[in-house]
Amino acid sequence: MSRLASTFEQLAKSGRKALIPFVTAGDPTPDFTLSLMHEMVKAGVDVIELGVPFSDPMADGPVIQRASERALAHKMSLTKTLALATEFRKADQQTPVVLMGYLNPIEAMGYEGFANAARRADIDGVLTVDLPPEEGEQCAALLKERDIDTIFLLAPNSTDERIQKMSALGSGYLYYVSLKGVTGAGHLNAADVENKLKQIKAITSLPVGIGFGVKDAETAKTISSLGDGVVVGSALISKIESNLDNPERAKSEIIGLLSAMRQAMDK
């Protein structure tokens, strides 16, 4: 069983929800990201989404755009992100790591080359924002052959037919984008999420992580209770951005927020 599947199975058994942080690899430096990953695990996160920086992050709001720009300023790349994941895995064999990014860096590496490199780095899942199932079958198959899950996005306007498609082609979990908009937007509506999750859950047996617009412990608790986990990204990265002169303070603020979320979700 894949690391993602067993993580979600364990959580379900204990009646808990997954806390899934997203951070951009190399923001502001690879060393910072590596030590942050380990500390986040200590704070009780279940899965880590590691953002691969891209020059044109079309689905991201300003906070994650700037995180990409900071990482790219010192030539962070898909190759270096995989090296970072390899380094993380040396000290942590339990926590699933999901790469999240855009397709062009994978195209540049070649699908097969990427799948092999991801296997070597012991990556658990890959979420490619601009690779919908219509175009993504080949990449998903290559990853599957190497026991790597492909995670698809679902949106508020996804139809039953599309939810079925993602459910069939995807594995690990599905990522529900809780609102129409970019990452870090601020108008999340719990009642809308609840209705949509009912529709999704009636179709798929995969776990569903919910993200976009989750900023505090209270929201994390409410939103995670509607699915199987909650993804938090911009709220963490804005703490890096507001503490660029003091990375240790950024780290402790991030850990503080994640601990509060963990506590609220487990209550």
């Binding site: 689905a59 397709l103 601009d130 690779l131 919908p132 175009e135 949106a155 996804s158 599309r162 129409k180």
Partner: peptide, 21 residues
């Protein structure tokens, strides 16, 4: 029918844009 010119073209967008497209 899916917008491909040989290997080129296609529909590489995030899920939220699939229904409007």
């Amino acid at each position: 029918a899916r917008g491909h010119f040989g290997p080129y073209g296609g529909m590489f967008v995030a899920e939220t844009l699939i229904p409007p497209i």
